[in-house]
Design a protein around this nucleic acid. Sequence first.
DNA 1: TAATGACTTGAATCTCACG
DNA 2: ACGTGAGATTCAAGTCATT
Lengths: 368, 368
Amino acid sequence: MTKMTSLKGVKTLPLNTILDGDCIDMMNSLPAESVDLIFADPPYNLQLKGDLHRPDNSRVDAVDDHWDQFSSFAAYDAFTRDWLAAARRLLKPNGAIWVIGSYHNIFRVGTALQDAGYWILNDVVWRKSNPMPNFRGKRFTNAHETMIWASKSEGAKYTFNYEALKSLNEGIQMRSDWVLPICNGGERLKDANGEKAHPTQKPEALLHRVLVGATNPGDVVLDPFFGTGTTGAVAKMLGRDWIGIEREAAYRTVAQKRIDNIRKFDKSALEVSQSKRAEPRVPFGQVVERGMLRPGEMLTSATGKTAKVRADGTLVGNDVKGSIHQVGAHLEGAPSCNGWTYWHFKREGKIVPIDVLRQQIRAEMRET
Amino acid sequence: MTKMTSLKGVKTLPLNTILDGDCIDMMNSLPAESVDLIFADPPYNLQLKGDLHRPDNSRVDAVDDHWDQFSSFAAYDAFTRDWLAAARRLLKPNGAIWVIGSYHNIFRVGTALQDAGYWILNDVVWRKSNPMPNFRGKRFTNAHETMIWASKSEGAKYTFNYEALKSLNEGIQMRSDWVLPICNGGERLKDANGEKAHPTQKPEALLHRVLVGATNPGDVVLDPFFGTGTTGAVAKMLGRDWIGIEREAAYRTVAQKRIDNIRKFDKSALEVSQSKRAEPRVPFGQVVERGMLRPGEMLTSATGKTAKVRADGTLVGNDVKGSIHQVGAHLEGAPSCNGWTYWHFKREGKIVPIDVLRQQIRAEMRET
DNA sequence: TAATGACTTGAATCTCACG
DNA sequence: ACGTGAGATTCAAGTCATT
């Protein structure tokens, strides 16, 4: 089960294991810049006062665990700053973090993230399709939680599988609000007494979307507040390596058992839709070299512009010479232009974008 | 038009007027504990860098106004602390505040609210039905903004018209996520040149819900960042008194004209807050995320075709990858195909169309 | 007149490999 | 590190002209 990766010949990363201990100490014991993604579900600091009862007088099983108790905002802030600093040290330069919280703590977490040098990419709202109602009728149904997605620093090249998420959303760009049910039913883990094993178990669907969108197979995902191990379970399914940190023995036991029973999806199922950026670059000159278009041949645009192909893979149109992109941009008076989709040629009576020639070359490249 | 209320015989409250000046100075000039509700739409501190163009090369008209520029988070925090302190002094003991923002600023606002002694009651997410997309495919569509609702202090007896909001929501308890369109069309105010009068005008439907839920007729509502006066317009319609503070003369002019033309209980303002009830679109990806089908699982068609489910909610069948609809259409050589009824899976020995899974998800969504 | 389609627009921290 | 240039990238509603 445990896979160890040597790092700089000194420290090793305890992949696919649950570490026992305080998350700050444990993170500080791991090698710097070794983790691709951190998913964190820290204590919410709920500050609940007494018991809450439903209209039928049944008692709501609230989060009143000792690990959720802080003496003040200052104490919570100090804790937050410390674990965020330890987490940031662990992240690779292009790594990223997701933190989930509610209005009790998420504003303090967000401020601490920004102050620590993280760069917020989005806040994402998990809109619960089946939240607990507000029994007293004194506030709105608390029907959502907030996740913050941030890169290690401004300008970092974070992972974002745009096309895969677009596919998950049936061809439409994924939005910052996600509608998903809370974790209950068979997915909700129970302890020996049949009670819920953890008060705030997150749904696997949530982690599925986070990990498909923000990691690639083989990436290392760390969860410093592992709980019952939803992060590890989904990471294993999706062929990502994971590390969990959890102080409470009871949670570790449940999580380990849960993850042992998970099977990885087969490799072909893990391939996701790729963006065009991942495709190899094909210079337009290759199209000419291979004789797919001849020097002197005329290209046309949907807007009625024309240009002539030259032997070196440049175009000339309206006295302007340059790349397919430059000439297209100039003729349209536009700041930029994708010449591959802008320019067309005639083949067997039909008007075809030159991009089909690039696709043909790419197909030939794959065959070899 | 202007109604003056004597307060403690010393200072008077300039009801139903727009005050010209810096919001902190102006608030400090008003009598303490005189206002029932504050609605604030402060600068977001967007920190935009260069220009952004749409894929069709048109330029996005960004928020680059001088009033949104701050030199650092520290400067923004200082500004936030100052105006929140002035606002808190103005509030009656049982008064409340609403602040709207995005991930750029809302975490700092929330932290400052808590530090100033306000007590957060809910964060409310405005889910935009028609947000601007992410044009570069590098992040999620920024499809929501966050509002924080807080009382002046813990234990205060804030106003909450539970039943009125429940009625607005077709008899169901109002949730913390509100789906409303952005402000455009006829409601969007234009200047003399036909350009938008203000870059960030909020929809009246949003203020309608806030004021119906958190004030009573005759209450005093103050907006320290009045802009084009949406808060005043809706307050007037709903029979609340209002005070606006705005530095920019151009905005004051537009706002005054707008409000002068408002009649109380304008019926059209009520109509915009009604949401449409359509069968919600369910992406096939949700079926995978929720574990109803697993990546790697095989689907079959009545015509004997098969395809494999992938982690991003696409299928692969006969070397073709794509949505459930695309792969079905390809395998049948058809121009289109309804994948929901075309594809089947096996459950307890029976062959079932995947559409039953979609119906299951819709049923869960309706449970709320 | 109603339907259709082209065009416009919205609080946006919006590219990246290569030399 | 920094400049250069290839080339990838959008959804829902509104207005307005045309059929």
